[in-house]
Amino acid sequence: MLDSYSVAFLGILTILLTVIVQSLVAAKSKASQPGAIPGKIDLSLSHSSFVFRAHRTFANSQENLTLMLGASFLAILTGADIFWTGVLIWSMAISRIIHMALYYAISTEQNPSPRSYFYLIALLSNFILLGLCAWTIV
């Protein structure tokens, strides 16, 4: 199974490493603030603050991680098409990295913001991967 799904596993590894990087960036940016309290974010912060954007980037990944990993491992365990499983997992991984980079770089309250499109690409990849799982099971 490891050889067959090696591209998919590398995509999953990339997603997990991305979340670790986001965690470190969020923790470092918050801890460097005067009077920082562990585990507590200043509620007055908004998109103009890098601390807020780093925190939201990490939180958004945490919110999506269960679905990402669940769909990914369900696809692998059910023997879903190897090629499409890899493509969809990498689509999620790359979209999340671009989402992160845009969130770090662009301070905007605009909706949709440029990062929203990459959030949607990752979400769509998840939905399609779940559909592939359903197709494989049936």
Rank of each mutant, 00 (worst) to 15 (best):
Ser113His: 10
Gly79Glu: 04
Gly79Trp: 02
Ile15Cys: 02
Glu63Phe: 05
Pro38Trp: 04
Ser49His: 07
Asn60Arg: 07
Leu24Pro: 04
Thr108Pro: 00
Val7Ser: 11
Leu74Trp: 11
Trp135Thr: 10
Leu16Thr: 06
Gly131Ile: 07
Ile82Tyr: 09
Ile76His: 04
Ser91Gly: 14
Val87Met: 10
Ile98Arg: 00
Leu129Gly: 06
Ala80Arg: 02
Leu17Tyr: 04
Leu124Lys: 03
Thr108Lys: 06
Arg96Lys: 13
Ser6Gly: 09
Leu123Tyr: 09
Arg115Val: 06
Pro34Asp: 07
Leu102Gln: 01
Gly35Cys: 06
Lys30Met: 10
Ala122Pro: 00
Ser6Lys: 14
Pro34Lys: 09
Ala8Asn: 05
Ile82Gly: 05
Val25Asn: 04
Thr14Ser: 15
Pro114Val: 02
Met1Gly: 15
Trp90Gln: 03
Asp42Asn: 12
Met68Thr: 09
Leu65Ser: 03
Tyr104Ala: 08
Gly35Val: 00
Ile121Val: 13
Lys28Phe: 11
Ile98Trp: 00
Asn60Val: 07
Gln33Arg: 10
Ile82Pro: 03
Met100Gln: 08
Lys28His: 14
Ala27Ser: 12
Met100Phe: 13
Asn60Leu: 06
Tyr117Ala: 07
Phe118Val: 00
Leu120Glu: 08
Ser72Pro: 01
Arg53Gln: 05
Val51Arg: 05
Thr85Ala: 05
Pro114Ser: 09
Thr66Val: 15
Gly131Lys: 11
Leu102Glu: 01
His55Glu: 11
Trp90Leu: 03
Ala31His: 09
Met1Asp: 14
Ala59Leu: 14
Ser125Val: 01
Phe9Ile: 06
Tyr119Cys: 00
Ile137Leu: 15
Tyr117Pro: 01
Tyr5Ile: 05
Val51Ile: 07
Gln62Asp: 07
Leu24Val: 13
Val19Ile: 14
Ser125Met: 07
Ile12Tyr: 06
Val87Cys: 03
Thr78Glu: 11
Thr136Phe: 11
Val21Arg: 06
Leu16Trp: 04
Ala93Met: 00
Cys133Ala: 12
Ser125Gly: 11
Gly11Asp: 01
Gly70Asn: 06
Thr78Ile: 12
Leu74Tyr: 09
Ala8Glu: 03
Ile128Gly: 03
Leu77Thr: 12
Ser48Arg: 13
Asn111Thr: 14
Phe58His: 15
Ile20Lys: 08
Ile106Ser: 09
Ala134Leu: 13
Ser72Arg: 02
Thr108Cys: 05
Ser125Ala: 15
Gly11Leu: 02
Val51Thr: 08
Tyr5Asn: 00
Lys28Gln: 11
Tyr104Ser: 07
Phe127Val: 14
Leu17Ala: 09
Arg115Gly: 02
Met100His: 04
Asn111Tyr: 15
Leu132Pro: 02
Gln22Ile: 01
Glu63Thr: 01
Ile98Lys: 01
Leu77Tyr: 14
Ile82Asp: 06
Leu74Val: 11
Arg53Trp: 04
Leu124Met: 10
Arg96Gly: 02
Ile15Trp: 00
Ser46Arg: 13
Leu65Val: 06
Pro34Tyr: 03
Ala27Arg: 13
Ser107Cys: 08
Pro114Met: 01
Thr18Glu: 07
Leu120Lys: 12
Ala36Lys: 00
Trp135Glu: 11
Leu69Gly: 10
Gly39Val: 05
Leu13His: 08
Ile106Lys: 08
Thr85Pro: 07
Gln110Ile: 10
Thr66Ser: 14
Lys40Val: 13
Ser113Met: 09
Tyr103Asp: 08
Thr14Phe: 15
